[in-house]
């Protein structure tokens, strides 16, 4: 008798029934439904019927909102990416041998990661306030520029991105610290014996060996940034004059699908997000060959 290649068919079916059922109802069917909705017309009351490419045509003919939101989101993601070098420097400082208080620092840098974005966005909105915000007071004291940071279309998105960097720093730090653990100490020591100073050692020894972690952090940072919603939703209220120019793609999705209740357009925007996320990630994986070294 031939041994059974699939001895567990029955058990697999029983144990997977609930998880797979849930996957189909809440994820796989929705995926298909969103694609179908993007080709449909109608409202929640009349129901939706598939009519063809109308929504996509709208997107390409007068989808200025969507394109602007897309650009905003990419700009936001690019700025938040600047947090990666900052995290690298801090991770390297924390990694020094014999440094005291390492876990103390790590705790403080990590707190923003566990705090609710809605709550911290409210704090930052208050700090950014143009009339009595803390930031303007500090900048005024040192002779810097002051303005209504989140009510000004020229600065609102950047102001939110600074908060994005602040929130992501802890996560980046943890992943980079794990990468640093894997860098052999002997290489650093060899460089030290050759007379390389700390900065030189960091740039010429640590960073090249850390590139796989840096790559991982960058990819995760961009994917996370493309999802930005909470910070914008709170920091720029509905009446904010800068909102129209600063919407991100997920914000626009929420607005079209659940405030204006234009579900088909919402579906189109969601699919645009998918395409952009895949494209940006693919570009990162392509570029990786130029700068990431796997030891």
């Amino acid at each position: 008798m031939r041994p059974n290649r699939y001895p567990d068919n029955a058990w697999a079916a029983i144990l997977l029934a609930v998880p797979f059922g849930g996957l189909v109802i809440f994820y796989l069917w929705p995926l298909l439904r969103t694609v179908l909705l993007s080709f449909s017309e109608g409202t929640a009351f009349t129901g939706y019927t598939i009519t063809g490419l109308g929504n996509w045509q709208r997107l390409f003919e007068n989808g200025d909102d969507v394109w602007r939101a897309l650009v905003n989101t990419l700009v936001y993601a690019a700025i938040v990416l600047l947090g990666v070098p900052i995290a690298m420097v801090i991770a390297a400082l924390l990694h020094q041998r014999g440094l005291r208080g390492r876990s103390f620092y790590r705790t403080l840098y990590f707190v923003p990661v566990v705090t609710m974005p809605v709550a911290v966005a409210m704090v930052w909105r208050y700090i950014y306030n143009g009339d009595f915000g803390l930031l303007n007071e500090v900048l005024d004291a040192v002779g810097g520029p002051t303005r209504a940071w989140v009510a000004d279309p020229d600065t609102a998105l950047y102001a939110v991105a600074v908060v994005g960097i602040w929130m992501a720093l802890g996560t980046n730090l943890i992943i980079l610290a794990a990468g640093l653990e894997a860098v052999p100490q002997t290489l650093e020591e060899a460089a030290m014996l050759d007379g390389a100073g700390p900065v030189r050692r960091f740039l010429s020894v640590t960073v090249p060996l850390l590139t796989p972690s840096i790559f991982l952090v960058s990819v995760l940072s961009v994917i996370g940034s493309l999802q930005m919603f909470d910070l914008l939703f709170i920091m720029l209220g509905r009446t904010n004059p800068a909102l129209a120019d600063s919407k991100t793609i997920v914000y626009l999705f929420y607005e079209e699908a659940f405030v204006r209740n234009d579900r088909p357009l919402g579906a189109v925007i969601a699919l645009v997000t998918l395409v952009v996320t895949l494209a940006v990630t693919a570009v990162q994986f392509r570029l990786q060959r130029r700068w990431v070294t796997y030891a």
Partner: peptide
Amino acid sequence: VLMVPPQLFVIPQY
């Protein structure tokens, strides 16, 4: 499902 942004599920989940 892991690779797809959450917005693609939200409308039908609702």
